[in-house]
């Protein structure tokens, strides 16, 4: 299997909204590579005609059901906003995403 490159790691970090310093990358890349080598063992397992299991409750006698779509009271807005780093007038605040005219 191919080696992971610094560029690839930076690209994944961007997708995950993370950023690594050059020192962190130096430590991180070999560990990342080692785990990738390890999980590559699955290439040797034959999975022809095998269906994927995404969830163990999918089959058999393990019934799950969806509840009725009924309206229930929500938490009060001020309670929900109490943990927000920045809020105003019943809304979460974020840095501006649109330029002012």
């Amino acid at each position: 299997m191919a080696s992971i490159t610094v560029e690839q790691v930076k690209k994944i970090a961007e997708l995950a909204h993370l950023q690594f310093s050059p020192e962190e990358l130096q430590r991180f890349i070999p560990q990342f590579q080692e785990v990738l080598y390890y999980i590559a063992q699955l290439d040797d397992v034959s999975t022809e005609n095998v269906e994927a299991t995404y969830h163990v409750l999918e089959r058999g006698s393990r019934p799950v059901s969806m509840r009725e779509d009924q309206e229930e009271p929500s938490l009060p807005v001020e309670t929900v906003l109490a943990n927000a780093p920045d809020s105003a007038e019943g809304h979460f605040c974020v840095p501006a995403v649109l330029e002012e005219e």
């Binding site: 997708l15 999980i39 699955l42 290439d43 397992v45 999975t47 095998v50 994927a52 299991t53 995404y54």
Partner: peptide
């Protein structure tokens, strides 16, 4: 990520079936 899903996540989910 795009291009790796089948090789990793799908493959692992199939081996999960074998474990089951």
């Amino acid at each position: 990520s795009s291009g790796y899903y089948d090789a990793y996540f799908l493959k692992a989910s199939k081996v999960r079936t074998l474990l089951k």
